[in-house]
Design a protein around this nucleic acid. Structure first.
Lengths: 163, 163
DNA sequence: GAGCTACTTGCGATTAATTCGCAAGCATAC
DNA sequence: GTATGCTTGCGAATTAATCGCAAGTAGCTC
C-alpha cells in the first residue's frame, strides 16, 4: 500500500498515532520537495500537516485557517504559493468546483467530481466512470484527460426529483 | 473599381444581410424574454446581436466591447445581468474554461470542451463523446450531466508530443 | 397618448479569489 | 560559518463578478 494513502486512512481514534504516521508521509513529501530544489520550511510542513489531517476538499482559505491554529503569522499568499508548488510536484490536486474558490486535496485520494448546478451538492466518483471518455478523447483528439482537475456539472438526483 | 472599396462594400452588404437574418432569431428570443416577464431593451438587443454575430466563445468583457461599438454607455454590470438572464432562459450557455473568465455562446451551438492545462488550447468536441459518461452517471448516481457547462482538462496532443 | 408599474439600467462601491513585487529571513550546500 | 538563493510576510494590485440605489423606460391599461 502506498505510504501517503496509508497515513491518512487511520481514523482519529488515536491522534498521536495518526500524527506520527502522517509525519512520515510528510517527510517523504518534503524529501521530494528538496530533490526538486525546494526547502523544508515550517510553513510548508504545517500546510502538509493540514492537507494530510483530513481528506475533505478544502479551499486555500480553509487550509490557511488550519495552519493559523499553530502559526498565526503564515500569510495567505504563502499558502497559495505552496499549494501551487505542491500541485506542480503532483502531491496534491486542485479542483474548481462550480463558482466558489478552488479546492485542494491529496493526489493519493484522487477521484472525479459531479457537482449539481442547482444545489451545489458534490458527489465523489471513481476514475473508472471516465474510462470511455478518456479512451475516445485519446484516440480521436490525442488529448490526455486528467479527470481530477475539473468538475462535471449537471443536476443531482434530488434536484431532478423535485422538478 | 478600387479593390479595397469593393471589399468593404461586400463586407457591408453581407453585414446587412446577416443582420437581417439574425434579427428574426433575436426577435424570437426577445419574445421569449417578454413571455417571462422581461422587457425588450436596446441593451438586451445589442447583446443578443453580439451573441448571434459570431459563434465563438466570448467573455462578458469581450461582449461588452462589441456592444460598446454601438452603445458606449452600456455598463458591464448590465452585460452580466443580461447574460445571467439569458442563461436562465436557456438561450445561451456559460462555460468556465480553465482559469480565465467565464465564456458565453448560443445554446444552439452547444458542444463540449477539452482544454489543455499546459497551453490553454481549447478543442470543441461533439456531445457524443460524453455518451458513456452521461449513461453511467445517470444509472449509477442518478446524476444528469450537462456537458456544455464545464471544460474537460488534460493535455493536448501538441504538449504531449513536446514532453 | 397619458399614466402607472415594475423591470432595467448606469454607476460606483464592494466582494471574492488570487497574484505580484520586494525587502528581509532562513534552509542548505560547501 | 558563510554564501546562495529559495521562501516568507506584507500590502498593494489584479481579475471577475456582484450589489445597492436612484433614475430611466418598456409595455400594459384606459
Amino acid at each position: 500500500m502506498h505510504l501517503l494513502y496509508a497515513a491518512s486512512v487511520a481514523d482519529e481514534a488515536s491522534d498521536v498515532a495518526t500524527e506520527r504516521a502522517n509525519r512520515e508521509a510528510i517527510d517523504e513529501v518534503l524529501a521530494l520537495v528538496r530533490r526538486n530544489g525546494g526547502r523544508a520550511t515550517p510553513a510548508r510542513r504545517l500546510l502538509l500537516n493540514a492537507l494530510f489531517g483530513n481528506r475533505e476538499h478544502r479551499s486555500a482559505e480553509e487550509l490557511a485557517a488550519e495552519v493559523h491554529d499553530r502559526a498565526p503569522d503564515v500569510h495567505l499568499s504563502t499558502i497559495y504559493r505552496n499549494l501551487e508548488e505542491l500541485e506542480r510536484l503532483g502531491v496534491i490536486d486542485s479542483t474548481r468546483l462550480g463558482s466558489g474558490p478552488a479546492t485542494y486535496h491529496l493526489a493519493s485520494a484522487a477521484h472525479g467530481h459531479l457537482v449539481c448546478e442547482q444545489c451545489a451538492a458534490m458527489i465523489e466518483v471513481p476514475d473508472e466512470i471516465f474510462t470511455d471518455l478518456v479512451r475516445v478523447a485519446g484516440t480521436e483528439y490525442g488529448f490526455a484527460i486528467n479527470p481530477h482537475r475539473f468538475a462535471v456539472t449537471g443536476r443531482c438526483a434530488d434536484c431532478r426529483a423535485k422538478a
